[in-house]
Each structure stands twice: as C-alpha cells, then as structure tokens.
Write a protein that binds this DNA or RNA. Structure first.
Lengths: 207, 207, 207, 207
DNA sequence: TATGAATGAGGATTCATTCAT
DNA sequence: CATGAATGAATCCTCATTCAT
C-alpha cells in the first residue's frame, strides 16, 4: 500500500514538525510561556491542526521529551565499537554527547542539565515523564561512571553524583562557550572538560 | 519630616513584603506560573495594592532579581575579615554562598546557575536585567578566580570560565543533595565541592 | 437510465444512513452535543462526506426531524383496517404510537413531548421546522380526539388540548417506567394510560 | 459592620443576577448551547466576572438548580395553614405550584417536568444534582399523593407515578396555554387540571 | 465520490490590570 | 492607601466546514 504508507509518512512528518517546533518554543519560553499557537505557526500550521496529532499541550511536551530524550538515552546505552579503557570510553561518550547537546541545545539546557524534580510536579503525567527521563539519563551515565570506579580510575563514590557533576561541567562549559562563538573543535573542548573532571583546575603539585 | 519619613519607611516595608512574596512565588511557579494574586495574598495585601508599588508583573520580577541578586553580589564583593590565601578565600566564599543559595534555593536555580541569556530575551527590560545580574555575578566570582590564577594555585585560564564551572559544580551537587535530605553539615559539603573543583574525581596518581 | 437510477438509489442510501446516525447522535447528545464527526463515523463515512448530502449541521437535524417525524405523522394519519369506535381507535393508536416512541425514545422525548416552541427559536429555519412538526403532530392527534368529542365519548373541549394531555400522560408514564425496566407488556401499559386519560385516578364513586 | 454587610449584599445580588441570567439562557439554549458570555452579558457583566462567583459553567447550572429548585421543594414541603381534605390540599398545592411554574417557566420545563435521568449523566456532579432535585421533588409530591391514597380518594397505586402524572398534566396544560396568551385566571386553570387528573376526560356515564 | 488533513471561528477559563469605594 | 469587583485580552481546546487528493 504505497498510498497508505505515503499518508503515514506525511502524518509522521507533520507530527515531527510539531515536535521540532515544540522543542524550540518550549525551550525559549518555558512550558507556561509557550503557546500552542506559536508552536503551530512555527510548524507551519494553524492552531487547531496540532490537536489532530496531540490531545493537549502536555502531550506535545511529552512527545518532545520522548523524541529528543530518546536520542540522548540511546547514546548513553550505546557501546563503542571497540573495547576502550574508562578514560577513552568517557571521552568517546562526551564527544558524541556534546555534539548531541549542541544540536539540541535548548532541550539539553531544559531537561538534561536541570533536575526536573526541582521544577516539575511528579504527580502529573507530564512531570513524571520529565523526571523519568532525567532519572534514566543519570542512571545511564552513572553506569558509565561505575566502570571508572571499578577500574580504579575514579575515586570510590556515588556514581550518580559523578554523573550529575559531569553533566553540570558540560553545561558550565557550554554556557560560557556557545557553539556559535566557538572556534575550538569539539574534540579539544571535550578534552578540557575531561581534564577538569578528572584533575580539577588546580595547578598540579610539583615534587 | 518625621511624618513623611515614616510614610516612606512604611512604603518601603510594603514594597519589601511584595518582593519577598515575589521571590517565593516566582521561584515555586516560575514567571508565567506565578500570579499577581498569589504574590499579593502572600504579602498580606489584595491584588490591586501591588500596583501602587510596581507598574507591572515584570517590574516585580525585576525587583526580585535586584533585591535577592544584590545579596549574592554583595557577598561576592565582600572581603573576609582577615587576609586569607586563595583556597581559604574560596572556601570562605563557598560556605557563605552555599548558605545563601540554600536560603534562596529557587532563585539560585533560576538566576544564578543557568545562564539567563539562554532562556531570556535580552531585548526586553526584564531579560536584560536578568542577564545583567548573571554577568555581574560571574564577573564578581571571576575576580576571585583571578586571584587564584595570580597566586599560581589555579592553572592559567579564563577566570570567567572557572567561575561558571564552580557555580555549575555547586548546582550539580545541590541537586543530588537537596537541603531537606542533607545530613552532612554545609562545611563538609563545601569541602567536597572544593576538593572536586581543585582536584577532580580521579584517583590520585601514586609515584 | 438504470445507471443514473442506481446512482440515485445509492445516494439515497447514503443520505439515509446519515439521517439514521443523526437520529441516534442528536438524541443521545442533544443538538449542540452532537458532532458531525460522530454522526459521520456512525454512518460509516468520514466527516467530509456529509457535506455532499447536506449543507450544514442544521440541515442534518432537519432531515432527522423530517424522516422520523414522518413516521409519527404517518401513524397519526393512518386508519385502522376495520372501523373501530373511539376508545378502540385510541387504543389502536396508542399501542402503535407507544411502540414507535420506544423505538425512537430520544426523538420522542425531544420533539414529540416537549413543545419545541418553548426551547427552539422559531425564526430559524431549523426551529421553524421543529415547531411545524410538533404542530402537525398535535393537529393530527387532535383530529382523533375530535372524533371522540363527536362521538360524545369525550367531554366537549379543545381537541388540541386533549392531544397534548394524552401525549404528556404517555411521557409521564414512560419516564417512570423505562423500556429496559418494563416487565409489563405494552398493551397493558397502554391500557393504564387510557384508563387514566378517560377516568382519572380518583376512586370511582359508589352509588 | 454595615460596610461588610453591604458588600455581602452586593455580592449576593451579583450572584443572583448571574443565576437569574443562567435560568433564562440555559432554558432557551440548553446547557451546551448556553455560553458564559451570554449569561454574563444578560446579567450585565463582562465574561470574566462570572468566575468570581462560580468556578465553572457546571457550577452556574448547579446554582440555578439549587436556587430555583429550592423554591419548588419548599413549596412541596409546606403545609397549608388549616387542615384540608386531600382534594383541597391538592388544589392548594397546585395553585401555588402553577404560579411558581409560571414564574420560572423555563426551569419548570427543563428540570421539573422532564426526568433528568433521561438526558443527564448521573455520574457527573451536575447530573447527580439535577437527578437529585428531580427525585426530591417527585418524592415530595408523592408524599401528598400518598395522603390521597390513604384517604381513599385516589385508587391504590404507586404514589410516585401519580406524582409524575400530575406534573405531566400540568405541563401538558401549560404548553398549550402559555401565560402570555392566557385569559383564564390560574384558579380556574388549576380546576381543570384537577378535574382531569381525578376524573379523566371521558364524558361521565349516566345511569 | 470519499477521505481526512487543515482551517479558523468560537467558547470556557485565567489573570494582569484598572478603578470606584 | 488598600480593597476587591470588574474588565478584557489571551490561551487552550473543539468542531463545523472546506478542499486537495
């Protein structure tokens, strides 16, 4: 059924364009500040159209979290093609994660870096979704950190804390060094993050 | 004019109570989620009363940023009573900063940790104010970091970047360790932040 | 033109299925509560299809009134196969009317029992149609009542009023005794209505 | 506190005017057809004002049912000043009930005569309220009918059915004889209803 | 002819803001 | 000055209606 599949493809396309618009508008204005009208217009539709694809504003944001979030989660779960020691493993992850964060800068700032539990009500379906995503992501990265602890490269400690610290560092760097002003290649940038994460900013002690 | 000045004092008092209420409500609900009604009620007034002191909701938030922000900025500018070397100076700052962040947890999360330029429109008066505050704060902390670089304790580098990294670390820790679940005293918590900031999380190399 | 007439027959069929669907949906949800979408789906079509047969929602409802109303009107006009005296004539009508009301319970409640003039705006085409139907029906039943007056079985009076009273009684009984809870056969039920209509509920006087 | 009580009075007045407007608009357009805007305008307010007094459209209708319904219920519960035999008792009730129905013609048609259970969803707060009112009313009138049965004036039977029949008769008469076209005084009109209720419309048998 | 995606007007509801008291 | 009722613009969402396919 090529007809059917074309329709499906078009519908998927429309849905996607709403989600993409949602990412931008939600990020720029926040959840309350975003209007369905703006999302629809940005997606190239009239305000009513959105409701053919989503039941509510909440659902749009949930789709945003789901779609973009899934890319982050996939990446966390993905194994490198060859076996790497922890530092290289982390470097491998950080480079790709950084690139993804660059592509979805607003989503990254809103959902990856901030703990949604601070600002979202977990008892709502939407809040639960946001928190769930964040938990999954931190848990995923924590799994990576656990390897480092096991290998003895990282000091013993809570891997989730390490995960959050690493994410925070990435954001701290990212905010001070936005993609559009960046002249250094990502690889070098990541090198700096990793360096700081491992060794801090202190001048190494001579002896 | 004792009468006039009493009036002035009373007016200032009223203004203050609105700002304090604003801090709480804006923080809990975000800018769009906060309502003038809730702010007024929390301040012990009726909704109309606000407009004798502020022209608009934006102005209330600006006053909030100004007032709370000022406490953060003061702290950054303040010198310790005795001369301290950089590490102690940073520790002294961090303890007081942490406590302030604890007292204004939501403000901290909204205005101190995130670069408002990412989420606020700089062309509005309000957005400009938020960005200005953030810049001032980072600049202030960067001044501190510059001391560390001068002293040779910190590696040479952009002091602003160090400032942002330090702030990010504090947030990364804070989110994983909220005040209401914290059993460790602040001093110890700060010690961990400083340790990581200086030396990272790597296992120290033997030799 | 057999082709043309087949087409016509098919078109008539489609129209009919929309009307039948309209009957159900309008009845269950009321005019404002009913949606074109639901009517179309129930008829087995997509929402756009309706507009090939009707110009508007109003027109659908008008067709509903027309079609179902016609069944009621036909029944009123129909003569029994054999000549009956008034009481049997009324009984004969009541049994069949009750059955039809049972089959179109919601239509009956909406258009037959209530005077639409109370709730519908006569100046609209739709309102006028509803009122027209009601008037026709009452006039029809009044014709029957006139027979009773002529025969001397009913006291002299306004036959229209008798018609309305009879209809009201049927509804009063029906609501207290819905079809799905009814154990008595319709014939017996009708007997009660007729009894009350003729003799009221008073205990017959002895003498 | 005269000030306070004046405010209270004014608020009560505003609420009342919304309820009165609600009665009219709901009756004319039905629940779905009525708009908050129309209710507000009819009450002399702007659309937002209504929400100071009611949380939702449902609540407005509930207030309508409550306020007007209470008058009907009061009347049902009220005892005549002197002891009357059943027929006079019923006449006394019917005259006053008729007058009330005249004053609230739309409410009467919508909530008193029709069994709301037929058209309203009992599982909603609003539907439950409407059904509750109807049940209370029928139960109340049934209490009166039970007296008639006890006295032997009415044939033995379900008093609730008698209640519904009486109400239906009143409506059947009312619809055919609207107040604005009526030339006969209410007392005479009631006399006719009672006559038909007790003795039906048949010509009395000679013997 | 039928489909169903898209439109856009309209309705419930919220809330910043005003203003008579 | 403070109140709080009232306003009306803005927002989410629904649904009759249109139209390209």
């Amino acid at each position: 059924m090529p007809l059917n599949s074309r329709k499906q493809r078009e519908a998927e396309l429309a849905r996607t364009s709403f989600v993409e618009a949602g990412v931008q508008v939600f990020s720029k204005k926040g959840f309350h500040g975003a209007t369905m009208d703006e999302i629809a217009r940005l997606a190239g539709y009239s305000p009513g159209a959105i409701y053919r694809y989503f039941h509510s504003k909440d659902e749009v944001l949930m789709a945003v979290i789901e779609r973009i979030g899934e890319r982050f989660l996939e990446q966390v779960r993905e194994e490198p093609p060859v076996r790497l020691d922890f530092v290289d493993r982390l470097r491998w992850f950080a480079i790709r994660h950084t690139q993804l964060a660059d592509d979805h800068r607003d989503f990254f700032a809103t959902f990856v870096v901030n703990n949604p539990a601070v600002e979202w009500d977990r008892t709502t379906t939407l809040g639960a979704k946001a928190c769930q995503f964040f938990d999954d992501l931190v848990t995923g990265i924590a799994g990576l950190m656990a390897l480092g602890i096991e290998e003895g490269v990282l000091r013993p400690g809570d891997p989730k804390r390490y995960a959050r610290l690493f994410t925070s560092l990435m954001k701290g760097m990212a905010e001070g060094w936005p993609a559009d002003q960046r002249t250094t290649p990502v690889a070098e940038w990541v090198e700096q993050i990793i360096d700081i994460f491992f060794h801090g900013v202190a001048t190494p002690k001579e002896h």
